Simulated scan of single mutants.
Amino acid sequence: MAPLTDSQVTVLPEAEWQARRDAHARRVRQWTGPHQERRLRREKHPVLDFLFTYYSHRPAHLERWHPGHGVVLAGASAREYLRWKEYTAVPEGVTPLPLSPQRRFTAGFVRDLLAATASRPPRLGCFGLHEWAMVYRAGEVRHEAWPLRLGSAGTDAVVEASTIKCSHFDAYRFFTEPARPLNTLAPSREGQVAMEQPGCLHATMDLFKWAYKLAPHTPSELVADCFELAVDVRALDMRASPYDLSALGYEPVRIETERGRADYVRAQVAFTERAAPLRTSLVALCEALLADHPDDPS
């Protein structure tokens, strides 16, 4: 491969990229370490397991540091990255390979989805009722080890007295059959780009998914930022759920009350603000990746 020009890449000296690699591993092990310990004990966590089971990025992959698009790792030890098929050697060192056609399609979809989401005002009136709709009139619940705060009948009554406005397909698809007709929206996979909006907690958590799906072209610091936000959002998601998780230190946000709904909206606004620059960074990354292939139809 021909040498890369200075305008195309940033070359990181060995000491610099190794320091960033080690800092990233220390940062994410505060989450991956306890998760792996729970797995060894065969212990389930109704809040945090979601980040490693619903999302397909394994803990070992989250711990792995990548420099990101347009970066070359200099120094002899950079050759350790060649064990992964996404990297190639260049005269300046080691760098991620260009995107395949399939992954260019993914980058185009992510760009379109996140740019469309960012273009809309946040809608803040859902109050996390998607979790309630997932247990509405259900014979069994997903987190069977944890009680419903209001019991089954009380949970059903909250759903029936509420207006459900879930815009996120991957939350809506877990609604019980009796709950689906109660949703005032009709999210679908095909309509995802047209419907997602920045106030949605699940759309915010999904920034983590879009970040890791573009790895190793996503700088791992950005992946970790998205993951950390997803951890915090997931906590609110389950605190506002019908489950009683106070024994784990998650005090409920009682969205069946006026005060609880106000608390939920305040947290939702804060998460929307935290998510905005991360969404912008991911859109910019997608555009940079696609600009490397200007003749590609995506």
Rank of each mutant, 00 (worst) to 15 (best):
A179L: 00
R279T: 14
V11N: 09
F174L: 04
A60Q: 15
V158L: 05
A138K: 06
G33Q: 14
M205H: 06
E16D: 15
Q18F: 12
F208W: 08
M195W: 03
L99P: 00
D170M: 06
T257D: 15
R274V: 10
G191Y: 12
E251L: 09
L48Y: 11
W17T: 01
D232A: 15
T5R: 13
I255D: 01
A89Y: 02
G260V: 05
A23Q: 06
R189W: 15
A211D: 05
M238K: 01
A23I: 09
V223L: 14
G191P: 05
S298K: 06
R39H: 02
R64S: 07
D156M: 00
V253K: 02
E273I: 15
A211N: 09
G154S: 10
V233M: 03
D6M: 11
S188P: 02
S162C: 05
K85F: 12
L278S: 07
L185H: 07
V94G: 02
E251Y: 02
E144Q: 13
A291K: 04
R189A: 14
S281R: 13
L12T: 00
L114T: 08
P34V: 00
P198V: 03
Y212V: 11
L82P: 09
L285G: 05
G151P: 11
P96A: 08
R104W: 00
P46A: 05
E196I: 12
L62D: 14
C286N: 12
L12D: 04
F208D: 02
D263M: 08
Y250D: 03
A203N: 09
Q36R: 12
H293F: 05
E190Q: 07
R274L: 12
A25G: 15
G139Y: 03
T163G: 05
R21Q: 14
W31P: 00
E287S: 10
P181A: 05
C166V: 06
C226D: 04
A76D: 15
C226E: 00
W17R: 01
Y136S: 03
A211P: 04
G75F: 00
R64K: 10
D296F: 04
A276S: 07
A194L: 10
G108P: 00
T10H: 06
R239H: 06
C226R: 01
S77Y: 02
E131A: 04
A153M: 10
R26V: 02
A157I: 06
A262P: 06
Q18Y: 07
W210C: 13
R234F: 04
A25Y: 11
P277D: 03
A118Y: 08
V158K: 09
C126I: 03
L285R: 12
R266D: 11
P46Y: 09
L222K: 01
H57N: 15
V158E: 08
I255E: 01
L129T: 02
P294W: 09
A186F: 01
L285V: 11
S188I: 08
L82H: 14
D263T: 02
D156K: 00
